[in-house]
Amino acid sequence: MRLLKIWGETCCKRSTYALIVVLLSPLVQAGKPVVEINIEQHLFVPSEITIPANTKIKLRVHNRDATPEEFESWELNREKVIMGNSSATIFIGPLPPGIYPFFGEFNPKTAQGKVIVE
């Protein structure tokens, strides 16, 4: 019974900590390096970004076109629709060194890019 009580209290504390982490995560996000990319004429500008290995970064994608685009990457496991003339935030990493391609799903012929992790 005592063991159960201790286990219950530990779980309760853990879930409280987890809840605090989730609630505070926007504050933690504020300290992450920010990388900006534009979408112009269905192209990513710049089309290559270099980020440090094992670091989480905040990617800000600004869609300067009037039409929507979907940022997609199989290698990064990321997908997000970005409406025309608006911006979106996508967190990527921490990643091991390598090259991670991404593309615009709505215009895959032109909207191609790479995240180079060094």
Binding site: S25, V28, Q29, K56, W74, K80, F91, I92, G93
Partner: peptide, 26 residues
């Protein structure tokens, strides 16, 4: 869960395995 990782509500981790050479997702 992947979307919550993308939004940084859940921690991102290294992949447990990689089967993209056998069955590519696209």
């Amino acid at each position: 869960s992947m979307l919550l990782m993308q939004a940084d509500f859940l921690p991102s981790q290294r992949p447990l395995w990689n089967t993209s050479s056998w069955i590519p997702e696209p």
